[in-house]
Nucleic acid binder design. Sequence first.
RNA 1: GCGUUCGUAGCUCAAAGGAUAGAGCGUUUGCCUCCGACGCAAAAGGCUGUGGGUUCGAGUCCCACCGAGCGUACCA
Length: 562
Amino acid sequence: MNLIQEAKEQLASLVHAAYQACVSAGTLADAAPYPVVEIPKDRSFGDFSTTFAMQAARALKLSPKAIADAVVTHLQLDNSFFTNASVVGAGFINVRLADVWYDRVLAAVMALNTNYGRINVGNGQKVMVEFVSANPTGPMTIGNARGGVLGDTLAAVLDMAGYTVSREFYLNDAGNQVEVFGQSLEARYMQHLQGEEAVIFPEDGYHGEYMKTLAADFAAQEGDKFLSVPSEQRREALIAFGLPRNIAQMKTDLSRYAITFDTWFAESTLHQSGYVQETIDLLTERGHTYELDGALWFKASAFGCEKDDVLRKSNGFYTYYAVDIAYHRNKFFTRGFDTCIDILGADHHGHTLRFKAGMAALGLAPDKLRFVLMQLVRLLRDGDVVKMSKRTGKSITLSDLLDEIPCDAARFFFNMRQPDSHLDFDMGLALREDSENPVYYIQYAHARITTMLTLLAGENASATGDAQRPAALLTHELERALLRQLALLPEEIRLAARDYEPSRINAYLLELANAFHRFYNAVRLKGAEPDVLRARMDLCAAVKTVLKNGLTVLGITAPDAM
RNA sequence: GCGUUCGUAGCUCAAAGGAUAGAGCGUUUGCCUCCGACGCAAAAGGCUGUGGGUUCGAGUCCCACCGAGCGUACCA
């Protein structure tokens, strides 16, 4: 159910038919393309518009105006969604929506209720969204916070659009950074028991305070018994202690953030099962690798990359790149996803071509693997840049942020912009409880409707009008605007899913809330004629439903009172 | 250098290749004896970084330049 698309298709088909009539009548030549229909930016022109006359001008060797005039005389709008066709400006053919269409909108929202907005462009195709995938070597960052909301809401949007969606967290629990984690933790453990000077902290180690806490907790549990064992054994024990702790913390933080993953995929399993080895062997069998200086190289340059890359280092270990090729091979070829989307920070954009090259070498169509790159976040407090947490003196983590900002506000703010644009997150604004805070503004509209409907519940008992034809009673321009806005949700879902831009839903809800508040101030329900009252109450109930459905996609609550 | 993302109102950002480039903030001024003022209404602000090109039509597509971020490891 997408009444915007239905209307566009109907108008295109009606204009096409009118054009065919002109061809039959001999007034126009038979050479024009199929009409393109759009919604004018400036609503005063009309509700829908077609640029058919301009599109056809060259082929028909006539002025757009002449073509439009000819087509309009044959345009048959009876029993359609439209009325009032007119030719304006250079040759735009504009129409207004008729009551039938408005009736259908309200009926659709009321009938579909919580399913209103759901469409089926996905046809159940399996899509994976992989996001956050933070290293389990430390706390999650503000960047993870943005990536988390982006991935989670994109997944929700795709679900609404009819895809079968899976959310995955890729756990980097193997490889070099885990080694460094072990070395760092080992140094902190020994320093904890023997003093700062006992060992030198590794140059490129993890310097965060949390490493000291982790080491102290380990010492509290195990005492000094790991001082006397070989270093390798000590590190192993520390990693076995530290990683699960960090992972548990990440899960806690994410659940505070209302994010749940379907799968946590551990990198280590790819090593243990020999899948990495098998994948690299496969690339070699296909002739995409060569040996040089003791390392195994992938011919990435044969797949559009600038240069080749190392898969297996001369020390025998695989690079992250090799593991990632194996991981993505697993997503597509072992688990059978049709499309895989990776949410990445913009600082990783250099990887996208390489990843695609790896998949191409395995025989996968390049557009199956998609990347959403997000720019970094700048934290502000009432306009000033915030670098460090006041409490800890260190950089602000996701957990710090959630101590201060409610989940609803954080989720909304991190998804307010397109992924590609730099994001300013103003913590002062996120806490405000007025119309300047967009979350409040939207939630307030929902709460306002709830109280109002409760208050008016007893007043429409004597309504006698035709409930199937409410548009005849909802004639105010602000009521019409509200109905058009309601009709837009399925279309917004379609576009957000098509372009991987879930922030469209935030913008959409702001506009819907705005349309409602304007209506509320200009049109009163209380005291209206019973039939009108009932129609307006239905309209308000529909707005409430759509607000709630939209907020649900964003993972934000729709409170009945605030 | 090469690659990549991005330059739109004072600020933060919108604009399926369409008509007079729109919102919010900030500034100024109004609206509650009335369903929630956590709200609404009105005013002001622009050579869309620069120069070409494609098109009936370009903020949008192509090319060059200027400026910013990021990448360009046998790190992940």
